[in-house]
């Protein structure tokens, strides 16, 4: 039916669908308010855990040894920025990546699958919600950290950091599509998602610089866009080494294109395979 609609009508329809998906996601989160509190507190708890570990090991928030690895003594600012940007990775993997499984669990997958809109429209709605939600959580985390811990991250340079984060988000959407495909193929993926989430946190410079990792692991991190977004954001704020803003912008745009194309292709393949095998609705 969509094929015989005029293009502008079709685009309008898809945009409406995106907004309705966004509305649905907001409604769902309102239905479970404890989630908002959880998302607000969880990243902060992980910062505090590392803060206390730092206090136990070096007794302050500066470390000379850390400077030899990261180019800055201030490990606390380093981990707060890492944690704030990692929120975007987590929400992309858990949000878009697990969207299908969530709808399946709620018994609404079939209704969404047969709706006369593109699947990517549905994912864009979820992605839009995830992006807005992540911005809110990251902002609150930086605010809490600036109030409670001995750091000040509410500075004007954060505008540029937000720009880099914006570029990172598109690459993460590609990662989300990839995960959606994996969910279609392997079903029960919650533990696996958690593992990937933790692994990404472990092998990227979220809480420590790449130089403390074994060389082969650090090499893997070079293929993850978060590595460049973190290096660019920290460097721009004067926390660690830095090349130039243009370098990070170009790298992130390349990641955006490659990951969205690759993620979309994997999703397409997984959907076709699941349809052939009659797996779409099975648990």
């Amino acid at each position: 039916m969509n094929d015989i609609m005029p293009l502008n009508e079709r685009v309008k329809g898809e945009l409406f669908a995106t907004l309705y998906v966004l509305k649905k996601e907001i409604k769902l989160w309102k239905r479970y308010p404890s989630r908002i509190l959880f998302m607000l507190l969880m990243p902060f708890l992980s910062i505090l855990t590392l803060y206390f570990q730092g206090q136990a090991l070096v007794g302050e928030t500066q470390s000379e040894a850390f400077e030899s690895f990261a180019g800055t003594q201030d490990y606390l600012v380093f981990i707060i920025l890492g944690s704030a940007l990692f929120i975007f990775v987590s929400t992309a993997i858990w949000g878009i990546g697990n969207a299908i499984r969530r709808e399946q669990m709620m018994g609404t997958l079939e209704s969404i699958w047969v709706a006369p809109v593109s699947k990517f429209t549905v994912f864009m709605g979820i992605a839009l919600f995830d992006g807005l939600f992540s911005i809110y959580i990251a902002f609150m985390q930086l605010l809490f950290s600036s109030i409670i811990l001995p750091v000040n991250l509410m500075v004007p340079q954060m505008g540029v950091v937000m720009g880099l984060t914006f570029l990172l988000i598109f690459a993460l959407y590609g990662l989300g599509f990839f995960f959606t495909g994996i969910v279609l193929l392997f079903k029960e993926i919650e533990d696996f998602t958690n593992l990937i989430n933790q692994t990404l946190r472990m092998i990227t410079p979220v809480s420590y610089p790449l130089s403390v990792l074994p060389a082969p692991v650090a090499f893997l991190a070079l293929f993850i866009p978060l590595t460049y977004a973190l290096e660019g954001a920290r460097g721009y704020l004067g926390v660690g080494p830095y090349r130039s803003l243009e370098y990070y912008v170009v790298i992130l745009i390349i990641f955006d294109i490659v990951m969205i194309v690759a993620g979309g292709a994997i999703f397409d393949y997984a959907e076709k395979r699941a349809r052939r095998r009659g797996d779409i609705a099975t648990h």
């Binding site: 090991l57 040894a65 850390f66 690895f69 472990m202």
Partner: peptide, 10 residues
Amino acid sequence: FLLFGKAILG
């Protein structure tokens, strides 16, 4: 936790 410890202790 171990890597973070290594990073701040050297």
